[in-house]
Design a protein around this nucleic acid. Sequence first.
DNA 1: TTGCAGCGGGAATGCGCTTTCCCACACGAA
DNA 2: TTCGTGTGGGAAAGCGCATTCCCGCTGCAA
Lengths: 345, 345
Amino acid sequence: MAASTLSEVARLAGVSLATASRVLNGSSRKPAEDIAERVREAADKLGYVPNAQAQALAKSSSGLIGLIVHDIADPYFSAIARGVQEAARQQNRMVLLASTSGAPSDEKEAVAAFAARRADSIVIAGSRSVRAEDKQGNTELAAELDRYCRNGGHVGVVGHPVVGASTTEGYHVVKVPNEELAAGLAVELAATHDGAFLIIAGPEGLYTSDDRVRGFQRGLADAGMPAAEVIRAGFNRAGGYEAGLALAERIKASKERLCIFAVNDVMAIGVTAALRPEGVWIPRDATIAGFDDIETLRDFRPALSTVHLPLEDIGRLAAGDPDTPPVSGAVKLRRSTETPVESQV
Amino acid sequence: MAASTLSEVARLAGVSLATASRVLNGSSRKPAEDIAERVREAADKLGYVPNAQAQALAKSSSGLIGLIVHDIADPYFSAIARGVQEAARQQNRMVLLASTSGAPSDEKEAVAAFAARRADSIVIAGSRSVRAEDKQGNTELAAELDRYCRNGGHVGVVGHPVVGASTTEGYHVVKVPNEELAAGLAVELAATHDGAFLIIAGPEGLYTSDDRVRGFQRGLADAGMPAAEVIRAGFNRAGGYEAGLALAERIKASKERLCIFAVNDVMAIGVTAALRPEGVWIPRDATIAGFDDIETLRDFRPALSTVHLPLEDIGRLAAGDPDTPPVSGAVKLRRSTETPVESQV
DNA sequence: TTGCAGCGGGAATGCGCTTTCCCACACGAA
DNA sequence: TTCGTGTGGGAAAGCGCATTCCCGCTGCAA
């Protein structure tokens, strides 16, 4: 990647390096118009593209914003990524992407890489976890982030604080009211469903999942219902599918309709997909609700009851956009939890 | 973003800058083990993180790979992004992201920004277009890419070459056999459907869409069927939805089942979503097929007939991964184009 | 006419690192 | 003992740019 440099431009325009720099790359001092014009012409003729690396080095600020997600192809993350991207665009920055499949140790490396690139800020999306196997990774991640912040970096985390992070300057968490919203969902569901509830959760220790489970149980309690049984599975479609398979027989054997709460939309879809070939129809034989309100899944049938989350805004907020309204979700009851006509005797 | 520098490390370790560099940042010359150990300790104590910008400047190679997509939240692009990301990871690079909502002039700016950052290579996903309003943008984009390549950059384009790009060194196109696959789809559909066909296409001039339309028509011709009528709409779900609305009455009025080919999956979903409230059922009243085989839509019901594209591999290929097999799609016939039992008299 | 701001351009320094070149030293052969 | 030869560390020159000084010039008041 060689390209023409500023000094070449300066030479061609017959001015000094300083002047050329002032003309081309924005400075408080504005050279005279005629000379500026000459510089611009020279730059144009040479196809000059400023070297952002060198600029960053000289003024120690890179205009980069690092984004860490578990999986960029997951619609949850890609929606957040879009928000981050938009915020970055507004701030005239570029987004540096890292997918880590969720392991804190990978995330730590990503943070280090971002720090090496002197990213102005880092956004970490994806659920934090306190699982035992992540213990060391979490500690290292926290240390790395801490160092990054001490060196003047800004960190935005979606959902929960990074485990073990000492609240440093420049560290902010975009709170997602998972618990409250899950409680709200439970209350609304309890209003029309008086059978049993069941929760299909992610692995224990995953904050997002745990919060939603806790909230849902609290909502049930508030509504005067007994606590729901909790089944653990992977926090993705496959997990939901597996849980669905395990559940099919039970549902068919039972006489009353079960109301299932899967802690995110893709899990709910997985459950539904597993149930269908078994002849268990939603919402006829069981009802189901998810969480996130993933856009790509809106056309899914039966329409999935869920909790809407402004994912794009969340991304924007994490990226430090000041104009974005605070996170506020909303329960969306749709077909998948409706009481079918024939049983509304 | 201040941090400890290499010279601080060198001083603490009591060695020269050169030695410290050789120890910490990989060089062909390996200093003695005892001295290396001292340097490593010093680096560790200071929490040294090499400044990638400075490294890039010094060795003029940034380890960056730029990715340009229309919309990162679109599952088509996010799947490609995942592939690019993985390839980058393998090559020990980082991905720089730019979303452009499809305008060539935006893409041009993204290329310039990547060039400024001295990205080693650039991947452009998303359909090329020859629409009149994109004419100037295309020209500028081509010029910018050309300059980038001449300066030693590598460019990978998904699908079609950038309009007007003179084939320079370092420019490669990941061919996607849209036309052939669409033809294959048409042939397979024609085998079981003998009514009329209709194509819901994207805007005229969008290569991807045009290719698929052309291929489908050719397939129909090969199968001895008359050409299908073509309706134009937006190349996204909204476009499909709109087209679906416009179509509903017609389908209800007609006595024979129509077979609809939407040029991508999300459009097909949009069509289906528009048709459903009108009482038009797929595949009872009409059948429909899409293109892309988007993963998130696999659980959609009726299961969507489509053409599978190895999107992740495409991303990898565009990012220059040598171990990825060439692009090969496959027709996937599913429920949405099945002949329902009751009409199989 | 002299003195003093004020303005605009240029030389030079440094951002943090890689890499070339040089030099001191040790070792083996003659 | 002396001369090559190799080995390993250090000094220094950039990489491309921003920015701080510095300096010459002009315009104005005294």
